[in-house]
C-alpha cells in the first residue's frame, strides 16, 4: 500500500486523473442536461479529453516533436515523442466532427417536428401523441 502514497506516484498519474475529471464533466453534461445542444457540447468535451489522454500516453519527457531535420540525418541522441498516437488522434478528430455534424443535423430536424430542443418536452409531446392514438383506438372499438 505504501507505494500508492508517494508523491512520485501521484505526480506521475496526475495527468490521467486530470483528463478523467474533464471526461466526467462531459459525461455529466450528456446524462443530466436535457438540452440537445448542450449534450453535443458535452460529447465534444468528453471526446477531446480522450484525445488528450492518448497524446499524454505518447509523450516522452525530455523528448521533442517527431519531426526530423530537413536533410534527414537523424541525430541518435535526440529522443522523439511517439508519433503513433498523434496519427490515430488526427483521424479521430475528423471523425468526431463528422459525428457532431450529423448530430446537429438531427437536432435541426427534431426542432422542425417538435418545435423544441429540450429532451423532456419532446418526451411529453410523444406521450400525448401516444395517448391520443390509444384514445382513438378505443373509440373505434366502441
Amino acid at each position: 500500500m505504501a507505494e500508492f502514497l508517494t508523491s512520485d506516484f501521484v505526480l506521475g498519474r496526475l495527468n490521467y486523473w486530470f483528463f478523467i475529471f474533464l471526461m466526467m464533466i462531459g459525461l455529466y453534461i450528456v446524462i443530466a442536461k436535457s438540452n440537445l445542444m448542450k449534450k453535443i457540447v458535452g460529447l465534444n468535451i468528453f471526446q477531446t479529453s480522450v484525445f488528450m489522454l492518448y497524446i499524454s500516453i505518447g509523450k516522452v519527457s525530455g523528448g521533442t516533436a517527431p519531426i526530423f531535420p530537413m536533410d534527414m540525418k537523424v541525430d541518435p541522441t535526440v529522443t522523439y515523442s511517439n508519433p503513433l498516437p498523434h496519427v490515430l488522434i488526427l483521424t479521430a478528430i475528423v471523425v468526431g466532427v463528422a459525428t457532431t455534424s450529423l448530430g446537429l443535423a438531427l437536432m435541426v430536424r427534431i426542432r422542425e417536428n417538435f418545435y423544441t430542443i429540450e429532451e423532456h418536452e419532446i418526451a411529453e409531446q410523444e406521450q400525448e401523441i401516444m395517448l391520443s392514438e390509444l384514445g382513438l383506438k378505443k373509440e373505434e372499438d366502441v
Binding site: 465534444n44 521533442t64 517527431p66 478528430i93 457532431t100
Partner: peptide, 26 residues
C-alpha cells in the same frame, strides 16, 4: 505534449469548423 500536428487539426477543426456548424444550428 509535442503533438503539433494534432494541435493544428484541433485548432482548425475543433475550434473552427465545429463552432461554425454549431452557430449555424443555433
Amino acid at each position: 505534449m509535442h503533438a503539433v500536428d494534432v494541435a493544428f487539426t484541433e485548432a482548425a477543426v475543433g475550434a473552427g469548423i465545429s463552432t461554425v456548424l454549431m452557430l449555424g444550428t443555433l
